[in-house]
Design a protein around this nucleic acid. Structure first.
Length: 478
RNA sequence: GCCCCCGUAGCUCAAUGGAUAGAGCAGCUCUCUUCUAAGGAGUUGAUGUAGGUUCGAUUCCUGCCGGGGGCACCA
């Protein structure tokens, strides 16, 4: 066990022992590290919690506990009572000295934990529709999913990265409709082809109101692989698109362990839904639906198999849970998606509770917000979405010339940091200027600070630590 | 209409029910006649609204106002 982990435990044990000595009841007190260091290196609220039960002033209780504890805790130099009854603990200089030497001697694994050792996690993220150009929503999902994966790994978990790619469904049919109409074929130039695909998606989406029946028929045709010409075009564009996505996964620094496709989960999902029609799912207007509201009034009915016998996203998602588990027997499955499917996902989880109760318990949905740009800053070529390529290009342009490779790395860092600097569920206003600022809260600043710190650590290896004052220890903690 | 999420400083964001609500930009005040003033040192400034629970509420509950998402064959 690490030295610093033990200090917190020593304090906790000390408090528990004191409560026992004074024959006071156990409570769920916390020992925390206050953000303001003048309030000690550790702090506890135990006295305030006891105040009500004992019907005594929390400050008096705090003093009583303080008197018992002071001088008896290893590594703790001073104990104080403050404010409404907080007990603050100040650690000794010797502690910080030892701890610093420990860190310097072990810079590679500093910060690693074993909290999740033995846990098997699978994280699904990015999840692009492959008949659409890679856009900023994918960048956001990818950044968050990759960060979560690394955090879990850092805490000792075994992590598998999964990407679930949409290769069937109405969205695909829309793009295919336009590609067929224009008789478009890949040219072999990756960026140009990606653009063609992106444009086809936009065109198809716009056409869907007028050409709904045609596109639905095409969807069925693709689903059943009924037409040779359609199959051929589908395959050639799918290949191109996957290449393009690989290119971006590489730039973003993600390496997936598994790729799942809607075309494979659809079949599994449809089977399981059909097997449960009459019990969990119901026939309704030619489709198979799940009436989630009869279990929870906050939920609503959703279609799992449409009236043409094609599984929808909902059924595919059920199938995916099983396909994933068959591949990797996870303890937890985390699904990173945009906020807009939050409500659907609740319905899916409600259905999963009946179909795969044990998998439902292991599944966690992690929805994130949208990335938006300040108005008018950047218009997308395609009109509707801003592509990853456009965003990366714009950010790169705003960085001082440092050579293409460095510039790209800095740009990726700037984008990722803007996404990760705030809480996951909220939308992000992406300000290019701010993202590449050389001062303040930006990825560029962070990378620069890291580079300098690394160089300092290199120079400092082997140094003996000798802290002279409390101000020194505060510097160290910061 | 119903269901979810969100409203914190001029802007973009923090704050496991705790102490004086923190940062970064921007602003303001100082600071260069010798090397990076694209710098340094200070400083102003906020919990949408009305209640409730609590020793204590940005945090939990209710109403209202404002923004976003969802509500049957798209994902």
């Amino acid at each position: 066990m690490r030295y610093h982990e033990s200090v917190k435990r020593i304090i906790e044990t000390g408090i528990n022992k004191t409560l026992l000595d004074l024959s006071w009841e156990e409570t769920d007190f916390i020992v925390e590290h206050p953000s303001d260091l003048s309030r000690g290196d550790y702090s506890t609220n135990v006295a305030m919690l006891l105040s009500k039960e004992l019907d005594r002033s929390s400050v008096d209780i705090a003093h009583e506990i303080k008197d018992k504890l002071e001088g008896s805790l290893e590594g703790v130099e001073r104990v104080e009572v403050a404010g409404p009854g907080f007990i603050n603990f100040y650690l000794s200089k010797e502690f910080f000295g030892k701890r610093l030497e420990e860190i310097l001697g072990d810079t590679d694994t500093f910060g690693r934990r074993t909290l999740l050792k033995g846990e098997k996690k699978i994280i699904e993220y990015t999840d692009p529709n492959i008949f659409k150009e890679f856009h900023i929503g994918h960048v956001m999902s990818n950044t968050i999913g990759e960060a979560v994966s690394r955090l879990l790994e850092w805490n000792g978990a075994e992590v598998k990265r999964a990407c679930y790619q949409g290769d069937t469904g109405m969205h695909v049919a829309q793009a295919m409709w336009a590609l067929l109409k224009n008789n478009s074929h890949p040219t072999g130039e990756l960026f140009k082809d990606a653009q063609t695909l992106g444009n086809a998606y936009v065109e198809g989406t716009k056409a869907v109101e007028v050409e709904r029946d045609d596109i639905r028929a095409l969807n069925k045709m693709i689903h059943e692989k009924a037409d040779k010409k359609v199959n051929a075009m589908y395959e050639e564009w799918k290949k191109v698109s996957l290449q393009y996505f690989d290119y971006f996964y590489n730039i973003l620094g993600t390496k997936f362990d598994y790729f799942f496709f809607e075309s494979e989960t659809g079949k599994v999902g449809k089977d399981i839904v059909e097997k449960n029609v009459g019990q969990i799912f119901e026939q309704s207007e030619g489709a198979v639906v799940f009436h989630a509201e009869s279990y929870d009034p906050a939920l609503h009915t959703r279609v799992f198999i449409n009236s043409e016998g094609i599984p929808t996203y909902e059924a595919k998602e059920l199938g995916l849970a099983k396909v994933k588990y068959d591949k990797y027997s996870y303890d937890q499955s985390i699904v990173v998606t945009g906020n807009e499917i939050k409500e659907y996902f609740k319905v899916i989880l409600a259905a999963m509770k009946f179909v795969y109760p044990e998998l439902r318990e292991k599944t966690k949905h992690l929805p994130h917000g949208m990335m938006r740009l300040p108005t008018g800053k950047m218009s997308s070529r395609t009109g509707d979405v801003i592509t990853a390529n456009e965003l990366l290009g714009e950010v790169k342009k705003s960085i001082a010339d440092k050579g293409d490779t460095a510039q790209e790395e800095i740009a990726v860092g700037a984008i990722k940091y803007m996404i990760l600097r705030q809480s996951i569920g909220n939308d992000i206003i992406f300000d290019i200027e701010k993202s590449v600022s050389t001062e303040g809260d930006s990825g560029v600043y962070l990378q620069y600070a890291y580079a300098r710190a690394t160089s300092l650590v290199e120079k400092a290896s082997g140094v003996k630590v000798n802290l002279k004052s409390e101000e020194d220890t505060h510097e160290v903690e910061h």
